[in-house]
Nucleic acid binder design. Structure first.
Lengths: 213, 213
DNA sequence: CCATGTGAACAAATTCACAGCA
DNA sequence: TGCTGTGAATTTGTTCACATGG
């Protein structure tokens, strides 16, 4: 395995590359050069080469990269060979949307549980799992072996959700609730605030100064 | 106005600061130093100062920043004084969730329209607007004066949604569908792929190497 | 040949450290 | 005194340009 460390920026670009390769695969393209890929998807060819070379020599000089091989390599580099088990805390619109969103063709992420405070949602289905009461969260985590928690409750319940997940032993958490949460160092918490993207767009609308992508 | 240009990174942090200030306001805090803010919300004090100083001198030496004044200033800096009018293309779970998500207390962003291809959704409500058929998009944009388009359709319809919005004259677009879209230079398009955050977490789970936040 | 992989040049972002002012 | 605002130092990220090798 011997992985080099790498910045979040590079990592996120690997995800992008993986998606681009998916497109190419579905088109039947067998081989691609960094330049072709850059033009096709509006990326930087030298950056593609740097990013990839950082993890090993995947390409063939004078030819380019073999699409299938590279896709497989990135897949495992990103840790997608291991199946991850998600528990959704909050199964309202956002939770349901993300369940669908995350259930993409390859099976790296599986929603194995959903809990909610709202009694009217208990017993309904999200994806292929039955929603259970929020106060059973610890038991649900134990039973399902969930290893990633996804917080999709309203802002007011987010802190509760975080505490409950940590208490239940979940060490990787994605927070989609519109509050900035904080976790102890041993828990990996990523806050995703989608309002920030809107505000970014609003800023550039002020005096239509065009940024790079 | 005389705004300095600034990177997306800085801009996004301003959004974060604004949110932190909101917390402080609701706690009744009147004044805050960069150091207090950094400790309270796990940020970098020198970065706070740099970011803020970049847009003018908001602080008082020896004292810190006046919470209300700074919040107002950031609000207008981000272009949130102007009301923005959103049209949601796709009002499934994700669209409905974002409608709620974006309808935060301050009224900078208002959902003024929603359209969908699915006949069963026509006539239902999202937020306070009635959903209309997707093929009426151009008319809806004209009638409502929507200036920001939010794409929340399934991946297969995303390209259609983008084309329709551009054709209708919308020049700022946020794409939440899980496909990488591309726009002509005169249209501001931001792709938001939430799967990337999951993949980021998955990577760090591989050999539990803890990143900074 | 031609496209990768890479060191060196460049650019951007962050942190440091302190002068300057309430 | 204490905290801001800021140049200078440092770190991080990107682009360039070419030697290398299939």
């Amino acid at each position: 395995m011997a992985d080099k460390t790498s910045s979040t920026l590079t990592l996120n670009r690997l995800s992008v590359y993986l998606r681009c390769l998916g497109h190419l695969q579905s088109e039947g393209t067998k081989t691609v050069s960094s330049l072709e890929m850059a033009e096709r998807f509006h990326l930087s060819s030298s950056q593609i080469r740097k990013d990839l070379a950082h993890f090993g020599e995947f390409g063939v000089r004078g030819v380019g990269y073999e699409v299938d091989v590279l896709a497989n390599r990135l897949h495992s580099l990103l840790g997608l060979d291991v199946q991850h088990r998600l528990i959704l805390v909050g199964v309202g619109n956002l939770g349901s949307a993300l369940a669908a969103y995350f259930g993409f063709n390859d099976d790296s992420f599986q929603v194995v549980a959903g809990v909610d405070h709202d009694p009217s949602r208990i017993g309904t289905r999200v994806g292929r799992v039955v929603v259970r009461p929020a106060d059973e969260l610890p038991a649900v985590v134990r039973e399902t072996g969930a290893d990633i928690g996804v917080i999709t409750v309203p802002a007011v319940s987010a802190e509760w959700a975080l505490d409950a997940l940590i208490e239940a032993g979940v060490r990787s958490i994605l927070n989609f609730a519109p509050v900035l949460l904080n976790s102890p160092a041993e828990v990996l918490l990523k806050n995703v605030d989608m309002r920030i993207h809107l505000e970014e767009v609003a800023y550039y609308l002020k005096d239509s100064s065009p940024p790079e992508s």
